[in-house]
Every structure is written in structure tokens, then in C-alpha cells.
Design a protein around this nucleic acid. Structure first.
Lengths: 240, 240
DNA sequence: CGTGCTTTTGAGATTAATCAAGCATGGTGG
DNA sequence: CCACCATGCTTGATTAATCTCAAAAGCACG
């Protein structure tokens, strides 16, 4: 993917503002020194650029440094299904380890930057460094658990509950990053939300309008303001 | 879970009939010697026994040696959602690595046996043995990809396509184990199939009957005979 | 300051859920 | 070994949730 603007290495993991949320989380200072040799480069992407596409050879992992990504799967039935949205601190490319090539499509939804880690380097360093090995396992397992959450979202909820879960999840993750949990901008379209939640875009729009009518949220285009987070949580418990 | 019948170690991985389908797949002979020290014990479970329950401390992984399992998630909305079925050669417990405790429920659907591998042993050995480290990563990544398949199943298919996908997937996996791809016994109830596919049991039953009417399969209770696998595959492509 | 894409909203169609009844199956005890 | 009971399965009729089709309004970008 040589069309990208490649920046030389500037910030070490040990001084990165994301270090507590990203791969370095929980590593000791000496582990971190090992890790820092790992990030071989950074890549900048413009909105709409693909970072990973199906069939692409796997040899590296990415950590989102800034921006916003979507991960989608191409259905054998036709069409794409969005499996997740990634924000800074989250890792991309883990699907490729098993077969040596990627099965997913990863696209930047806004101008973004990722840190590149060669898998061969990771494997080398992990075998010398227990903490880093453990952390790699944790990152992979976290992805397994995250996908289980998506399976539950799709498998056991009504439209209102899906949209509520989606908003609460985004809110949590933005809060973890130090942003407002109550106000944020949706980086994706209604259609993309629908693809993720297995709803049509009209249903997403209607559900958001309904939440607004009930004074749970305020929506204006892509900006969302969660007015009453308890009511939003209550939607999950409601039977309807 | 000390109520289980624990058998002492009898068969080494290197001579296990599942070695090409299980954790040992792709390892060299010397890797295998390392691996064999890993399987500390076997556990037998009776139908209905729980192997893993939510909140349980994570310290080991399991490989299915014989039998049949279901993995389910408890929904915050209430009720359970089945996230997958596991047959011999498949690995259980990977969700626990990230937080040190399990989030899933794993239950035997028939009398079964699993090989137990302590995670601390795995980590030790993997750091000395590249092949095994790589294989562990592959196993975890395969689980990520498997779950992506479930997300797609739930997110982009109609009832007929879901049931067809379910049958084709089971057929493939049984074939890999050396069993018939055309005839097999469903180990789970219609309700459990429905929970996995996000359909009600009546819909599962109706869809199976419909496939039978169209001479795609023969069904008699829990036994399934795939009569025309091409027609079954064609269901996936059909728009309706 | 259009022009095209996204979003909203409405009305009607469709899929699968729900409710309901009877039938098969498998395990149990006489 | 058979009868019985509990559980699981099938099938039908109706209902509810979401999709589809349609039209207009809002926005964003060139």
C-alpha cells in the first residue's frame, strides 16, 4: 500500500498519550522498551482509504493512533456486513494470523493514522518477553470477547435495544479515550450503522428519532447528545 | 469442577488421532514433544455438564477430544444466546485470556472428553518454542475468524440461508473429522439451533421441513441426510 | 449555489414471531 | 417388555416487527 504518506518514527510507545489504552497497557517500563522497537512506521490514511482488504497477505498488525475505522466482512450471500468500528488504541489485522492472509476489509471513515507492527518482530520479541507475550494474548482474546458482544447484539435484541447498545458502547469508548461520554459525532452513515446492527437505514433513523422524541437523546445529523443515559440503559432492560 | 471423572494421561498428542486437526496441527516432531508435556489431564463430562461458566477463573484451555459442546453468552437483555457448537479438535476457553476470567458458558451436549492445558504451561513453552507460539496465535485468530462467520450469518441472511449455512458448516466439519458429510445426527435441539441462528424453534422446524419438501435433505428427528448439497449451497445464493 | 448523497418520514408489504394444538420420541418404572 | 409421561417436534392461523418503496427535506462539497 505504498500510496500512503509514510511518516518516520517520531513518538515512542513509552511517551504516546494512548499508552494506557493501546498495546502497551499493563507493560512494565522494560517491556515498553522492547515494544518501542516494534513500531516500525506510521501510516496516514485519508477518509475512504482501505487499510486492509480481503485476500491481502498478512504480515503486520496495526494500532489505531488517530481517526476512525470500520471493519467489514463480505457475505457469501452478497453485500457487506460491518463487524465493528475501531477508534484510537484499538488493534487491527488480527484476523490474518490464522491463514496468513486477511479476510476482512478495513476502511478509514475519516483521516486517520495507524502504527505498524510487523508480526515477525512481535513474535520475536514476545518470545523473549513474557509481559509482551501475555499482552499479545490479551489483545487477541479481547477481540474474541468483543466479537461475542456483537454476536449477542445481533442475536438477542430488538431494533431499539440494538441502537441503544450501539450508542452506549460508543459513549463508553469515547469516555475511555478522555472524550465526552455524552456528546459525540457519529463518523459513519445511518446505512453503516444499519449494516453493523443488521437494520435498514430507515429503521436506524426512525429509532434515533424515537429516542429523541422520548428526550433520551438529541440528534442533529451526525451529532448525538445523550441527554438521559439512564433511560438509554433502561431500553436494554425493557421487554418491548 | 472436581465432580468430574479425571482420567490419568494415556495418549500423547503425538499419537492422538486428532493431531492433524487439533492444537498440534502443523507442528514439527520436536514441537510435538514440547506440546505433549502440556496436556496435564483429561476430563470426562456427561451430557448436560458445564465445563465453563461465566465468572469462572481462567487458568487453562481445553481441547475437545470427543463429544459435542455448545458455547453460550448470557445476554444483558435476558436469556442466553448460543455463539457456537464445538466438536473434537476444537479449542475452548480462549475468551478467558483477556480478563483472567470467563464470560461464556460451555456445556456438553453429549458425553464428552476434553484435554486440559494449563495456560501458564502454554505460555512457558510457547516462549521457548516458536512453532508452538505461532500455533497458539493461529488458534486464537481462527476463533476470531470463526466468530466473524457467525456475525455474518446473523447479520446478512434470511431464515432459509441461515439454516442452510448451519447444515453446510456442520457437514464440512464432520467431513474434516473423517465422518460422513452427507449424514449426521444433530446433537442439539431445534431450540438450540434457533438460539444459534437467531430464529425461533418453529421457524427452524419449518425451514427444515421445507428443505425436505424440496428434496434437498431428509430429516427424521435429529438425523439429517443431505441429499443434494448443490441445491443446499444454491440456497445461499438465492435472493429470497 | 447547484448537485448528489444522506436523512427523515409515511404507507404498505413481508418475514418471522407468537399462540395454539396435536404428534413423535425417548427415557423410566412397573 | 410395554405403557406412560415429559420433552421435543411439527404444523396451522394470526400478529407484530421490520423491510421496502416512495417522496421530500437537509447538508456537504465542489
Amino acid at each position: 500500500m505504498s500510496q500512503f504518506d509514510i511518516r518516520s518514527f517520531e513518538t515512542a510507545c513509552s511517551t504516546c498519550s494512548l499508552r494506557e489504552l493501546c498495546v502497551p497497557a499493563g507493560l512494565t517500563k522494560s517491556d515498553l522498551e522492547h515494544l518501542s522497537t516494534l513500531v516500525s512506521q506510521r501510516v496516514r490514511l485519508k477518509r475512504g482509504d482501505a487499510l486492509i482488504h480481503p485476500g491481502q497477505k498478512f504480515d503486520r498488525l496495526y494500532a489505531v493512533r488517530s481517526g476512525f475505522f470500520k471493519t467489514s466482512l463480505s457475505s457469501p450471500v452478497g453485500g457487506d456486513q460491518i463487524a465493528g468500528f475501531q477508534i484510537p488504541g484499538e488493534v487491527l489485522g488480527l484476523d490474518g494470523v490464522s491463514e496468513g492472509q486477511h479476510s476482512v476489509h478495513v476502511t478509514a471513515l475519516e483521516d486517520s493514522e495507524v502504527c505498524v507492527m510487523m508480526y515477525s518482530d512481535i513474535a520475536d520479541i514476545a518470545s523473549q518477553n513474557c509481559g509482551l507475550q501475555r499482552q499479545l494474548h490479551r489483545v487477541m482474546s479481547r477481540e474474541i470477547v468483543r466479537e461475542q458482544d456483537v454476536i449477542m447484539l445481533l442475536g438477542s435484541m430488538r431494533a431499539k435495544q440494538r441502537v441503544a447498545t450501539f450508542l452506549l458502547n460508543l459513549s463508553d469508548r469515547y469516555e475511555t479515550l478522555g472524550y465526552s461520554a455524552a456528546e459525540f459525532v457519529l463518523r459513519m452513515t445511518r446505512k453503516e450503522i444499519g449494516s453493523y446492527l443488521n437494520l435498514k437505514l430507515e429503521t436506524v433513523s426512525r429509532t434515533l428519532s424515537q429516542f429523541a422524541d422520548e428526550n433520551i437523546i438529541k440528534v442533529s445529523g451526525k451529532s448525538v447528545h445523550i441527554v438521559d443515559i439512564e433511560k438509554l440503559r433502561a431500553v436494554l432492560r425493557s421487554a418491548e
